[in-house]
Design a protein around this nucleic acid. Sequence first.
RNA 1: UGCUCCGUGGUGUAACUGGCAACACGUCUGACUCUGGAUCAGAAAAGUUCAGGUUCGAGCCCUGACGGAGCAACCA
Length: 566
Amino acid sequence: MSEEDIITGEESRSPVSFIEQIIIDDLGEGKNGGRVHTRFPPEPNGYLHIGHAKAICLDFGMAEKYGGKCNLRFDDTNPVKEEVEYIESIKEDIRWLGFDWEDREYYASDYFGKLFDFAIDLIKRGLAYVDDQPAEVISAQKGTPAQSGTESPYRNRPVGENLDLFERMNRGDFEEGSRVLRARIDMTSPNMHMRDPIIYRIIKSSHHRTGEKWKVYPMYDFAHGQSDYFEGITHSLCTLEFEVHRPLYDWLIDQLKTGEYRPRQIEFNRLNLTYTVMSKRKLLELVQDGKVSGWDDPRMPTLCGLRRRGYTPESIRKFIDLIGYTKYEAINDISLLEHAVRDDLNLRAPRVFGVLNPLKVVITNYPENMVEEVDLINNPEDETMGSRKVPFSRDLYIEQDDFMEDPPHKFFRLSPGSEVRLKGAYIIKCTGYTKDENGRIIEVLCTYDPHTRSGGHLSGKKVKGTLHWVSAAHALDAEVRLYDRLFDHEDPSGQKEDDYRKFLNPDSLRILRGCKVEPSLKTAMHLDKFQFQRLGYFCIDYDSTPDHLVFNRTVGLKDSWAKMNK
RNA sequence: UGCUCCGUGGUGUAACUGGCAACACGUCUGACUCUGGAUCAGAAAAGUUCAGGUUCGAGCCCUGACGGAGCAACCA
């Protein structure tokens, strides 16, 4: 595509989001010198989740696509809620997703000085004043959305007094909560945010970067737009709930700007997923209440949780690409996310044999001490991934579900008298089985046909089913963690009467021990991803060691047999 | 009861300055298969919240209803 095509978007028919269209139009009009500069502004008070990924992909994605830049800016204006701990995790997650802010790592706190000066300037221009009233009184005077507010008795305080008071607020002369600085706008505005919003409050906690230097800290509205302005941001993309803040954003920019350049705030819908909660507060509660093992519990929608679950950055980006950006709230089906990982892992995850619920199979006519190495394709979707050798012997394990004593009509697997293919090896026939004193089947007896080995001259023989298996003597023991959706209600937070915690799924984690996996997995590393053939995609958990393998199930394979039986 | 934003198959999104409502997920068939996966072929599924209006023609423009979301933190 030529540069012209990129700007007009005429080359590709693929539809663009309304935001991208705005960018294209702005570029076309030559606004802001034809620059595109975005920013991703997390508050360091929690871990990033997949909703943030939606913002990250937009912020970095638009910059990348239109030859611009995207800054990383920590919105650290509230020292009582923010912690350094989160900063590293946020950076790690953005990098993991595949984005790079280069040297542009900024902090709103970098601008505290300029912000303070701007506040002084507003005071001097009669556009800000110090209010001595307590929070409850100020709040009451704000009115309600349907009822206009009333003016503070301090609203017309002389400039000199405001200047003096504000300086002393910052010096620490006053207690927290005793005074605030307010912008002097319009108490009768139908927009609550324009009713003389508080722009500075006194906080005496130590700040993670500026220490004890400041005793007053700017509010979000007084920091965000100005930070955008200081950084030369052109498109400030945020979620829908900030829509009503936009008039204030613009008002402040109007007071600040000196030339033609101005940043523009545009809002898009946040990401909601079925069967999950997305608010930082709720995620924090789940962690603190021990409902999950931590921020990176594989059931969490956090990026670190998804990573541990076995999701790839590509699959997350693909998913976000699929759902789009609009101006109305939606709730996205988690099955689309699951589709995105399957689709990605299908192409890149090597296939292996793993038996979750082992059932012993003895091939009675197979020589007792013989071991054959059978050759197995690592990935039928990608022959460059080669093949591997897997040991085959007389005593094997297959999946318990793959044998039925008294099978229903369309059961293609093993049952008395039936024949199945052991994938990559032989066709076997079930000749009997034994039960324990409780009537549970503990062993299945089979015979094999030596001519049916894969690649052999009778290997073309048709059988209905193909099973995965492991050689009992060679198999490795493993623990497998099966995850299901954390909530059993589609929209756990949307139920007015019920707390979301009421919908926690009691079976969201099932731990299987004594699983058997093929020996090649001995050397697998943390987060390595595999397809356990016929079962699903699994990855190695952080808890795993070579002597105690632990797998997380990322997502199951589509299972039309299971569906038939529902 | 105020202001702002928004209503398109079950779900998420498309439809360029009005021109036969399209794609994906999901669902259901069938084919193929040494993964009941993948792949392939096909089907069902909305007439665009409703009512008027403008127009040869409206999902798109106008009016009015109805419905949903957001806004009353010294949070972001």
